[in-house]
Computed example of a mutant assay.
Amino acid sequence: MSLRLSTVILPVHRWSEGGRDRWQRAEELGFHTAYTYDHLSWRTFRDGPWFGALPTLTAAATATARLRLGTLVTSPNFRHPVTLAKELISLDDISGGRITLGIGAGGNGFDATALGQEAWTPRERADRLAEFVPLLDRLLTEDAVTQRGAHYSADEARNIPGCVQRPRLPFAVAATGPRGLKLAARYGQAWVTTGDPKLYEDGTPEQSRAALRAQSEKLAAACAEAGRDATGLDRILLTGFTPDRNAPLECVDAFVDFAGRHAELGFTELVLHAPIPDSVFDVDPEVFERIVTEAPAQLA
């Protein structure tokens, strides 16, 4: 598979004040997919503007024609499979079948307690995701679903006419642990990673690539256990969280080197954060656009 470039557009701009323009520009630049974070707020952006992911993607669907759109990632922290399925089917219809659902266990950030609950432990998050994904799969592929679970249930939940994409819109499952990787192997059309977070502060790029190789090998093993050919699963790296940080976005040559090394590891898609001034994603917009338009020819 050839290496695709995608982007994350954080929902921090009013639609009438640059929000629409950013999604349309992503399509003009030729990105494969433009994702947004499905959070109620996120890290250093907590005290500033932050809009909902699914309404934003709905607006983006009406403002673009070819660009794939998606979440990166949705989690059970404040979502329920029954209501989420209805919204996703609607969004897939409005976009003409251009939606990818990035989905993962979530973390212990602001979303984890926004509904008034105690933050779940990693094991509790994994337990919920293990129920969430199979139920969502059924809800998106069957006209009516009844299921009782320890955490999520459905009672004659109707989802007619289903997704435009058949049998359903694709799942990109974010996972590094054994249970999540099994879900990716069983239900995913793609696998998502940000690398090894333990290496972010003090690791080296070489150590990061070794960790990514090990994660990829574990994914392959999970696919083999599920009786699935691992080469049929797209592998997505959400950049910006490896020890390199934003260094690959300093110039075209630096990015081509970074992209080539990760393509050698089997990654089929690299996701770049669209620039946001005075943030962790503060990169030169002109250089960013040069990378997007010039690097693909050198990576072909």
Results as ranks from 00 to 15, higher is better:
residue 167 P to Q: 10
residue 98 R to H: 04
residue 103 I to Y: 06
residue 104 G to L: 02
residue 113 T to W: 08
residue 147 Q to R: 13
residue 99 I to M: 11
residue 166 R to I: 12
residue 104 G to V: 02
residue 159 N to M: 12
residue 136 L to C: 14
residue 173 V to K: 11
residue 133 V to F: 12
residue 151 H to P: 02
residue 113 T to L: 04
residue 175 A to L: 06
residue 157 A to V: 01
residue 151 H to E: 04
residue 114 A to C: 03
residue 98 R to C: 04
residue 160 I to A: 15
residue 151 H to V: 01
residue 106 G to K: 00
residue 144 A to M: 09
residue 174 A to P: 02
residue 126 A to L: 11
residue 131 E to A: 11
residue 104 G to Q: 05
residue 146 T to R: 04
residue 115 L to S: 09
residue 127 D to S: 08
residue 100 T to F: 00
residue 130 A to E: 15
residue 108 N to W: 03
residue 179 R to K: 13
residue 135 L to P: 03
residue 109 G to C: 02
residue 125 R to G: 04
residue 176 T to H: 04
residue 163 C to Q: 07
residue 104 G to P: 01
residue 168 R to S: 03
residue 176 T to S: 12
residue 119 A to R: 10
residue 110 F to T: 04
residue 156 E to T: 07
residue 131 E to F: 07
residue 142 E to G: 08
residue 125 R to Y: 02
residue 122 P to V: 12
residue 167 P to V: 04
residue 113 T to M: 13
residue 114 A to L: 01
residue 159 N to A: 15
residue 124 E to C: 03
residue 159 N to E: 09
residue 166 R to F: 08
residue 115 L to D: 06
residue 175 A to C: 05
residue 177 G to V: 07
residue 178 P to D: 14
residue 102 G to I: 00
residue 175 A to Y: 01
residue 168 R to W: 00
residue 154 A to C: 08
residue 165 Q to N: 13
residue 155 D to P: 00
residue 111 D to G: 05
residue 118 E to W: 07
residue 108 N to Y: 05
residue 164 V to A: 14
residue 148 R to M: 13
residue 120 W to M: 13
residue 139 L to V: 10
residue 126 A to Y: 07
